[in-house]
Amino acid sequence: MKEIFINIERCTACKSCEIACAVEHSLSKELFSAIFETPLPAKRVHVEKAFSFSYPVKCMHCADAACIAGCPTGAMYRNHEFGSVNVNTDKCMGCWMCAMVCPFGAIIPDYGIKVAQKCDFCPDRLRKGDEPACVEACPTNAVTFGEVKELFKSKRLLSAERAAKAVLVREDKEITPLEMLRNIGNI
């Protein structure tokens, strides 16, 4: 089964992945028409910048997915075709239990329509044999797609934890860049 791997050191915060994701999840799947759609197509990957640090935050399609166990409607499910974790928006009640337990902050609540959104692994693209849109768009190979290797897995988790820390600490404006780096080093 193929997985997305994120290399935190390579991300330059160019946000190509965000744009590609939004376009892939638009009605037209074309950038120039997508920007005129209402509502604007939503991206499911967010590049979080923390001073000298940036990182694309998205669903890791965990093997033992907390969001599936936490979902009390059965809306969150494993798509066995691609091994991905997806939301059935018809079943979702917008209770945010998935956001409560996702260790990566990868759930994007749509508070308006009370539906959880998240990375869906671009099933239309995978079916055609293409890579997910964010992977294809990333100019520095910070986001790559391939077979799972144990080494990759442990490294991936480490960087995800760092990202968690970066995302959270960034919000507290009081912190200085030096403290920021120290915090990241702490993990």
């Binding site: 945010w96 337990v101 902050g105 934890e161 959270l168 915090n183």
Partner: peptide, 24 residues
Amino acid sequence: KDVAKGGLYLSLINKRVPYSLAGG
């Protein structure tokens, strides 16, 4: 209001990661 990052905090609680906001 915005609870999207709840799980991130939960994992920091569970892992006992120091938040160390010195002077914050």
